[in-house]
Write a protein that binds this DNA or RNA. Structure first.
Lengths: 401, 401
DNA sequence: TCCAATTAGTTTTCAATCTGAACTATATGG
DNA sequence: CCATATAGTTCAGATTGAAAACTAATTGGA
């Protein structure tokens, strides 16, 4: 007998409605809805909403914020909002830097700190130690603002196993099957620390806190070319968790060998290294090389211009194929594709028009506006969303003062 | 206020559990479970299962089939099965033929009929008229076997709007924005007739009635190259409903122009027409040309061999990219790719190994075993699944004798 | 032969939770 | 200052599954 689904119990109704109400409060955001507005918005009765809100307030997830004046007459409602005294710490390990951010339940970045750190080839333990220092800063900031930390999210540029806290493979860090202990970064946080992929987190950050629509492909141009697929406002990770590997789509069957073992992958044409090399940018730190490349582009250096043009063209091929396969209607560019957006865009659009005419509206090809906090927001947001989606489990997990 | 989700009501629990029990019976299939076994399998109590089964039996969806002898002692259980006196008619319009099938709730093909029909360029009304004749045969067969027809599914080789019953675009039929009236094929069926895409239906047929796993890509080689993406045992159609267009993945950026307006699409290398042309197969009906090509392959004709080899190679490129983007771990080949499977496979596997080494286990690259009934089964199955997933709605829709 | 053991299925009681309606609370405006 | 309007609470009623006790049907051994 196959028992894919759990049986419905009477209590499930409340779990679902707790989440529905909490989600409504989160979506309404700055408007700070009253119970009556929530009742109208969710379709529940006022009685049910009152009862649900009472539980949420008691748990500390929701706060009442004074009276709310909407119409002209009648008793004013009590405004409700996600508590600004509950937060999650977002953390990011990338090839050239470490970063942390403190995000409250409402999605506000209350503290942010980043340091350069050449992590490539460094032992995970060493990197985690450095990150611990940053995390301590964030914890201090939370204490100062009286924000209780519920949990954390840690994004890394590689494939992860969230259940076991293992980085299965992060080629650009030279990590392979590395067991991490992210929980140690945030002792005592009731929801622990969730490990995630950098591109996926950035995509989720864009969805929840940026200009993300319900369906889009986020393209992450870091050292590697990654992607995050958002479908119906959810991250699509695929059965094995490694969906969105845009960097290894074959864009030319006679193309050069790729570090992945394949050939003709997008990354060999549009990865940071490939672009710098094609443009003839000399060695240096990421910041230096980026500056040099941008300068070269501004003075219309032909080699740099051609390099970026080619990258855009092949990115267009990959996006055309992706759009066809997954019916993608919108694309958000992040990382170095965001930085190079202006120079990349014409070739990219031309390529899309050549390989998939009319499929993607140029207006739906945008550049991320979250800059470097997108990944942090997404990493933290996953924990915040887990609370919004299962508040009942959270109520049990721990009602902290 | 955003009201994405409906509020949970107490009654929803029963809807869910009705579906859970019905689905359990469907999955258990030939084993014909007793109420007690269902209780164990679903996690519900015997009392709850008894009550749910009573409703399902009353509706006619489930039948009791005599005593069930399992253990050595104790009262024997009443075996339960999906009623074999309820059925759905699956129908298919393709470029060269029409087909119908009668499928009972248990997924058994109780009647099947197909005729050659050159539908390319024919007016939809004319094609529907011919199909009506076939549908009448199926209805007669149903009457003879005392099977009540609940509804129908109609698959066409094109993009459809299921809500409005419009074929948005079926290039190989030369149909564009054609309003159909599928309901007229099956007057009186309580659930109407559901329009669907041929490749998607074939993928679903493979999932429900073939060797389909929970996650796979079905590749449909008909006149065009189509695809159906199954993720977590569900069809992924994308936000606009046109996901799975494997035929228009770019496999060579300098490739020839494609009918879609793009260039270098897989279809220009691996579509039926492209293969026949590259192989030098003379004109004729599909059956004749296929026979000629197979004969040429058997006698190791170099041109035919090369044509199929190239098609396999480019199909490999497309599958490598698809696997990377969507984390696809299994592929099922249908249509002419199934027919050519034996000759295609080496080049396809070689190509996969070159472009995405180790990503797809060759054992997970299989050929459909449903032959020509896969699409019919899938088209009908969608209606059957809708009943299994929402039996409560069905109970309201109509309890027929 | 017949009863203890065993398993299937039903009945009964209870708790959870929503709806709906009546009720209380608090504001505005004439 | 009261009619009106809106917010929010209280309470009876309905639905539904859990738990436990009960009835039903069968086997195997005394």
């Amino acid at each position: 007998m196959n028992e894919a689904t759990a049986p419905g119990r009477v209590g499930d109704v409340r779990r679902r409605n707790l989440s529905l109400v909490l989600d409504s409060i989160a979506r309404t955001g700055d408007a700070k809805p009253s119970r009556a507005q929530l009742a109208a918005g969710t379709g529940l009765t006022k009685a049910a909403v009152s009862s649900l809100v009472a539980d949420l307030v008691e748990s500390g997830l929701v706060s009442e914020v004074g009276l709310y004046r909407d119409g002209e007459r009648g008793r004013p409602g009590q405004g409700l909002e996600l508590s600004s005294h509950r937060g999650v710490i977002g953390m990011e390990i990338n090839v050239d830097y470490l970063a942390v951010g403190l995000v409250d339940l409402g999605g506000n970045l209350r503290f942010h700190s980043a340091v350069e750190s050449r992590n490539r080839g460094l032992a995970p333990a060493k990197v985690m130690e450095r990150l611990g220092g940053l995390a301590a800063e964030a914890k201090a900031a939370a204490a100062a603002e009286n924000i209780a930390i519920l949990g954390g999210g840690l994004a890394v540029p590689g494939l992860v196993d969230q259940q076991r806290n293992v980085v299965l493979s992060a080629p650009n860090l030279h990590w392979e099957n590395e067991q991490l202990n992210p929980r140690s970064l945030l002792e005592g946080a009731p929801l622990g620390v969730r490990l995630s992929n950098e591109a996926n987190s950035a995509a989720l950050g864009e969805l929840w806190y940026g200009g993300g629509q319900a369906d889009f492909l986020y393209v992450s141009g870091e050292v590697g070319v990654g992607g995050g697929v958002i479908i119906g406002s959810e991250l699509y990770t695929g059965p094995g968790g490694s969906a969105g590997e845009l960097g290894h789509i074959v864009v030319h069957p006679e193309g050069p060998a790729c570090s992945c073992g394949g050939a003709g992958c997008l990354e060999t044409f549009a990865g940071q290294e490939a672009i710098f090399e094609a443009a003839g940018t000399p060695d240096g730190t990421l910041g230096e090389r980026t500056e040099l490349l941008l300068t070269a582009l501004r003075r219309k250096d032909p080699r740099a211009t051609q390099a970026v043009h080619d990258a855009g063209r092949y990115l267009g091929v990959a996006l055309a194929s992706s759009a066809r396969l997954m019916d993608i209607e919108a694309v958000v560019l992040g990382g170095h594709f965001a930085v190079l957006g202006e120079w990349l865009r014409p070739a990219l659009l031309g390529s899309l028009e050549r390989y998939a005419p009319g499929l993607l509206d140029p207006a739906n090809l945008t550049v991320s506006g979250l800059e470097h906090s997108g990944t942090l927001l997404g990493a933290a947001g996953q924990v915040i969303r887990s609370v919004i989606e299962s508040p009942f489990e959270f109520l049990l997990a721990g009602k902290l003062a």
